[in-house]
Design a protein around this nucleic acid. Structure first.
Length: 643
RNA sequence: GGUCAUGUAGCUCAGCCUGGCAGAGCGAAGGUUUUGUAAACCUUAGGUCGCGGGUUCAAAUCCCGUCAUGACCUCCA
């Protein structure tokens, strides 16, 4: 027996005609509307009998209790299974389920829709995480599983759309089966359980464990949360919805720098920057058809008479725009880019931790519209190069810090082995492969770089997909060489992943270093203070100001600790702020016209000239954006922000 | 949504088990000190112990409810 439990705002149905001869007689033939109830779509399968009643009742009562609802509708629904029981026995068991459920409680209203009828069905499923729940209930001793309850559609319960009827995606979803492999640089596709991970491949092994076995070492709060607070970058904002963070000046500066950097890289690659609205009409035809596939994770806004939702990606904004372009094959590939600030996804409250996953996030998103699969494949490789270079320059190297996963359909792989192989050899180390027998998603292939954090959780950063569906879905067309209208293939690339998540990865990487006893740091080009200048006594502050000006002229962010504190304490604070270079100015320096530099990473201090220091800092900043310091230059003027 | 935690000064937390004067460090303000590479010293201010109810002579402490937050589970187009 298979059941799908739905917690709904309302359900309405109207029996239209008899589907089978054994259909039960109707008590009344009119539209039935029930509000705030649980609908249990139920399929009785071959071999099911009354031994399952107990489990069905228990399962139902548990679910009702969990979501605090006291009304239930048993709804005969054949489409959950391909091996149905004969109608007569199925009907009998259905009524037994109803009776048993009614007998088990006196607080819950039990209803049942008629059996054997074709019915019009209207449903509005609630938005909360538990509102959709599916189960297979099987006999105790005949089945493979020791328990009586087996999760079926464990992954995506979003196969039901939020306004209309049960979508066809449900059927496809059920058949979605993943096969897991390691694909080596040499091109061998090895089933994951037959692959021997080397010592150096511990991260890849962890990625497999995470993806397949769902294993992780349980730790408390991930370390980056403490760090983002300690460094005064970001924090939770209790007055907003969770997953919407506040960013302090230092954190905002890091974001600005990353945003500008990624945007410049994409622009150099040929991406055209555009801007699209942050909210959309839920009832626009393009939106409705999209929701039929991927519903229920967005912020909804009711404004006047309109139902709006906040965008969860830049995709549809760019697609709606491109639909109105007149495009020749000569214009392709056409690359559009937007860095969304923000995209919104109402992720379940439990999955939000620090900067790892947010409900409001900044996402660089670059779509390439291509003529055909051959052009798409060529472009796809270019974008992998772009992504690798973006990640590397940010300070997270694919080689050491990231593991690639490639996911594709069996069909695509069979026809494009060499191409897939090409991707892997560009990475130069084995990758995780997930292969699907059939295509359920809109893409035939995607890859992503995963960062493994200190709790063994994998988070995707850069990613790219080959989309063969949305060109048609959104009515995007171009005119080909022979004058025919065609739908392009669309590539979806984020060369860095969400900006906030990049910061998460940088902080987790630092935490890893601390664990290994190394000095943690953030890349110099992302530091709000690149040089801290400390006078030995107040009388040297003017000299420090001179130095500050010289550094500023060279686009170096520096500040002066002019507070009333001891030198030791100021140095200590510079250390705890992870400032790379600290300069001390006192009698000696004034007399010799030199500066004394303390290098935090090299753990050394030495005397040098300003020019040398400028060179030292400018070198790693080549090609990086240039922004002024985002706090008062004199520390005595700063409020205290970090805790 | 479930389970388990947590909520005390601006911040980090102790006190709660075993009911009896509301505590510490950091930070802030004022003063002393003028400092050479990871924390100078003194003084002062700062509290609806999340909120509501109950038990008690007496509640931060025990009980019930409620709100908020976190971790985990689940999930993650």
């Amino acid at each position: 027996m298979r059941i799908l439990q739905l917690h709904v705002d309302f359900v309405e149905y109207l029996p239209v005609k008899k589907e089978i001869d054994d259909a039960e007689p109707l008590l009344k033939n009119e539209k039935e509307l029930i509000e705030d109830t649980v609908v249990i779509l139920t399929s009785i399968e071959n071999g099911d009998d009354e031994t399952l009643i107990e489990d069905f009742v228990k399962e139902t009562l548990d679910y009702l209790k969990k979501i605090k609802c006291n009304s239930v509708l048993i709804y005969p629904y054949a489409h959950l299974s391909s091996s149905l029981e004969a109608p007569k026995s199925a009907f009998k068991l259905m009524t037994q389920l109803e009776d048993a459920l009614r007998a088990s409680t006196d607080t819950i209203v039990v209803r049942r829709a008629p059996f054997g009828w074709t019915k019009e069905l209207g449903i509005k499923v609630k938005g909360h995480p538990l509102s959709e729940n599916s189960r297979a209930i099987v006999k105790k001793n005949t089945e493979r599983q020791p328990g009586t309850l087996v999760e079926v559609v464990s992954s995506k319960s979003d196969a039901i759309d939020n306004e209309g009827s049960v979508s066809s995606a449900l059927a496809a979803e059920k058949d979605l089966k993943s096969n897991w492999y390691v694909l080596t640089v040499e091109g061998a596709l090895i089933p994951y359980d037959g692959y021997k991970f080397k010592k150096s491949e511990i991260n890849l092994e962890n990625l497999f464990k995470y993806e397949i076995l769902r294993k992780r070492t349980v730790e408390d709060q991930p370390p980056h949360v403490k760090l983002m607070r300690k460094l005064g970058l970001a924090d939770y904002e209790p007055a907003s919805d969770s997953g919407n963070m506040r960013f302090y000046p230092k954190g905002r500066l890091i974001k600005s720098l990353l945003e500008q950097f990624v945007t410049k890289k994409v622009s150099q690659y040929g991406g055209l920057e555009v801007e699209t609205p942050i909210m959309y009409d839920s009832h626009h035809p393009s939106m409705e058809s999209y929701f039929n596939r991927f519903p229920a994770r967005q912020y909804n806004i009711k404004s006047d008479q309109k139902d709006l939702f906040l965008r969860f990606a830049a995709c549809f904004g760019q697609f709606l725009m491109t639909k109105d372009f007149q495009i020749s094959y000569k214009n392709l590939p056409l690359k559009l880019y937007e860095l969304t600030r923000y995209s919104f996804r109402r992720e379940k409250s439990g999955e939000l931790v620090g900067l790892r996953r947010l409900r409001a996030f900044s996402m660089p998103d670059c779509h390439a519209f291509c003529q055909d699969i051959n052009q798409a494949k060529i472009e796809f490789l270019k974008r992998l190069d772009l992504s690798v270079s973006v990640m590397e320059e940010i300070g997270i190297t694919p080689e050491k810090d990231l593991e690639m996963a490639i996911r594709f359909t069996k069909e695509f792989y069979t026809n494009n082995k060499e191409f897939v192989q090409n991707l892997v050899s560009k990475i130069g180390k084995p990758v995780l492969v997930e292969m699907w027998d059939d295509r359920f998603f809109y893409f035939v292939l995607k890859w992503e770089f995963n960062f493994l954090d200190n709790s063994g959780k994998a988070s995707a950063l850069a990613t790219d997909q080959i989309d063969i569906e949305n060109g048609e879905r959104y009515g995007i067309t171009f005119i080909d060489e022979s004058g025919n209208k065609k739908n392009p293939i669309i590539l979806h690339n984020s060369p860095s992943g969400a900006i906030e998540r990049v910061i998460f990865a940088l902080l987790e990487k630092s935490a890893k270093m601390m664990k290994e006893g190394k000095t943690p740091y953030l890349p110099l080009w992302l530091m709000n203070t690149q040089v801290r200048i400390i006078p030995v006594r107040d009388e040297f502050i003017p000299k420090c100001a001179e130095l500050l000006d010289q550094l500023k002229t060279n686009s170096i962010r520096a500040d002066i600790d002019d507070r009333e504190d001891t030198l030791s304490k100021k140095i200590r604070e510079a250390e705890t702020e992870w400032i790379h270079y600290t300069v001390i100015i006192g009698e000696k320096e004034v007399a010799t016209n030199s500066i004394s530099v303390r290098d935090r990473l090299k753990k050394s201090s030495y005397s040098t000239s300003i020019d040398e220091l400028v060179k030292l800092i400018k070198e790693p900043m080549k090609g990086k954006p240039d922004l002024p310091i985002n706090l008062p230059e004199y520390l005595s003027k700063r409020p205290r922000i970090a805790s």
